[in-house]
């Protein structure tokens, strides 16, 4: 019963969040100097007279007050119609779906890699806090935490694609090959560098958080008592450390989804990887308002889902919450 009430509460919160985001982003776009007609017509603008322009604007209802336009957009949204993307000439929902699945492989790989490696490095560093291993790991983590994703992407591109020629310079598939003929190995080959960029950037954050948490735990009363029972460092980490950092690590891992999403925008742009991140940049640069708003709402949903999953897992795993609710 409780979990049901909890889920309903989460859902209401999501609806409220989406509504707020939609109002905010709609307001921002309305205030921006974007001219939808120009964005749609593009380079052909010179050939269109002011009357024609006026007629398009009227047909699209661009002269109506903002509230009316918002209500119109919202009612289409409710029906699942996100509009048509001007630059891809496809329904926005379709663009987002295609792009998202391309990004999913990239983000998923980076998510798992940065999670696992970040956790391991964090545990190693926290367990031997103050040692030279810890110093090196921390130096590496601070260095990466302050490295911009696009800069690292460019660096990797120069080293591995341009000089060493181990990885392709761009895209998710080899150019000039039909999508049906692309092999899995080729896809993987194109995935390596962008995924590496995202992972390396993600590791730093997770490492530093895990390290800090482990140090806190190693200073706790129950670790002192475990030491008094004769537990050695490995035993302390294995029997008590991992168990107690697992929960915050899960939260962190799911919360990192938002950062991953932000990172993928930059990484995809550098590698011309046709994912959602690249579409976001394109939509912004080329004033594709329906796509941009669609992506904003979608990313809100995506990040919210990540955080909600972390929260739900926490409730399911932590006995203090799980059993505390029951009794």
């Amino acid at each position: 019963m409780n979990i049901l009430r909890y889920l309903i509460k989460k859902l209401l919160r999501l609806i409220l969040l989406l509504f707020t985001i939609s109002v905010l982003s709609f307001t921002l776009v309305s205030l921006s100097p974007i001219d939808p007609v120009q964005a749609y017509v593009g380079a052909e603008m010179m050939r269109i007279g002011p009357e024609q322009r006026q007629r398009i604007a009227e047909r699209w209802g661009l002269n109506d007050p903002p509230v009316v336009r918002y209500m119109r957009w919202l009612s289409s949204l409710m029906r699942g119609d996100l509009g048509t993307s001007a630059i891809y000439n496809q329904p926005v929902s379709q663009v987002i779906r295609q792009r998202f699945f391309t990004s999913l492989g990239l983000m998923g790989t980076a998510w798992v890699l940065s999670g696992v490696l970040g956790f391991l490095l964090g545990v190693l560093s926290g367990a031997r806090a103050g040692s030279w291993v810890d110093q090196i790991i921390r130096f590496y983590a601070y260095l990466l935490a302050s490295t911009p994703a696009f800069w690292l992407a460019l660096l990797l591109l120069i080293v591995f694609a341009v000089f060493l020629k181990w990885a392709p310079v761009c895209c998710a598939t080899p150019p000039g090959v039909l999508p049906e003929q692309v092999t899995f190995a080729q896809r993987l080959h194109h995935l390596v560098l962008p995924a590496l960029t995202l992972s390396i950037i993600g590791i730093a954050n997770i490492t530093l958080h895990t390290r800090q948490k482990l140090i806190t735990i190693l200073n706790s009363d129950y670790i002192l008592f475990a030491r008094a029972q004769g537990e050695n460092l490995f035993g302390l980490i294995w029997h008590h450390g991992l168990r107690n950092i697992a929960l915050p690590a899960i939260t962190l891992q799911f919360a990192s989804i938002s950062e991953l999403f932000g990172g993928s925008v930059l990484a995809e742009q550098v590698f011309a990887y046709p994912g959602l991140g690249q579409a976001t940049v394109q939509a912004g640069l080329r004033s594709d308002v329906p796509l941009l708003l669609g992506i904003v709402l979608f990313s809100t949903l995506f990040v919210f889902t990540g955080n909600a999953l972390a929260d739900i897992l926490y409730h399911l795993i932590d006995p203090r919450i799980r059993l505390g609710v029951e009794s």
């Binding site: 129950y222 002192l224 008592f225 475990a226 029997h239 008590h240 107690n244």
Partner: peptide, 11 residues
């Protein structure tokens, strides 16, 4: 030890 806080809360 002194109190229950010396037991691992998750074990």
């Amino acid at each position: 030890p002194q109190s229950v806080s010396f037991l691992d809360p998750l074990m």
